[in-house]
Amino acid sequence: MLKTVYQSVKKSITVLLLLLPAILICLPVVLIITGSVMDSIELKQYLYPVFGGGEEFIRWKLMPDYPTFEHYGRLLFMTPSFFVLFWNSVGMVVCILIGQMIVGVPAAWAFAVYYRVRGSRTLFVLYVVLMLLPFQVTMLSSYLVLDRLSLMNTHLAIVLPAVFSTFPIFLSYGGFRAVPMQLLEAARIDGAGELRIFVKIGLPLGKSGLLSAIVLGFLEYWNLMEQPLAFLEDKSLWPLSLYLPEISWMQAGFAMCASFITLIPAAFVFVLGQDYLEQGIIYSGLKE
């Protein structure tokens, strides 16, 4: 009896200890949401010491004195540039993901199924190394190609290199590895061609890998910064992720509202695709 009480107390303490930092982790969202519905004057009062050089500390109220949707109204109805950047982001992310699927998924299939072909291991290691190289190392090489193809300052400069990223290949590969080889052998004996096997057996059975590549890819490219900063000069071509920092603190409510709207698609994908996200993280750690 005493032992079970002790056990359950211990368990509750563990849960509490794990939840506390978790709550701290989520506080930024709470700040953004409350700030986005706060009246400008109130917001200015709270933030002035931090950004304007006052001597007091910052203050905050979780329930604003005068809740208002003025910022949302201004952002959604009076700021067309916001929509331009929003659709820039959507367009680039969608094109990148579609491109990655078309180019990357067959490649992942090749590595997963035809691993006995000579040279395939070496190529795979090369792909893994490329996946791990940070953008800064390949920045100059990308620039040289993009410049030669006169793609600088166009959306293709962001989309094309991303389409050939090797990270989604690695994730889809993780999904394809789970497809039993005997099944493919049986299909071959029945006379199915390799392409047919890929479409009819590979894609349906390996779809968890593809979906995890899409979820992780979306979160990554929705947050795109290094590439547009380097390759897009024209600010009207920028993605949303570069718009927010341009807003000054004087319009904090407006900025928080824009932040919140930027967060919505990512949060949506996160909630819908959480299982695939986890699966993808696990695939990203799979050994060949």
């Binding site: 978790a22 969202v29 910052i58």
Partner: peptide, 30 residues
């Protein structure tokens, strides 16, 4: 549930939290 909460920052675009970072870490911040 706990795992989801820990994973959530992965989904938060960097740009959205920059203002929060400033509010926390500036001299008169939280």
């Amino acid at each position: 549930l706990i795992k989801s909460v820990y994973l959530f920052p992965l989904a938060m675009p960097t740009a959205t939290i920059v203002l929060v970072w400033k509010m926390v870490f500036y001299r008169q911040g939280f």
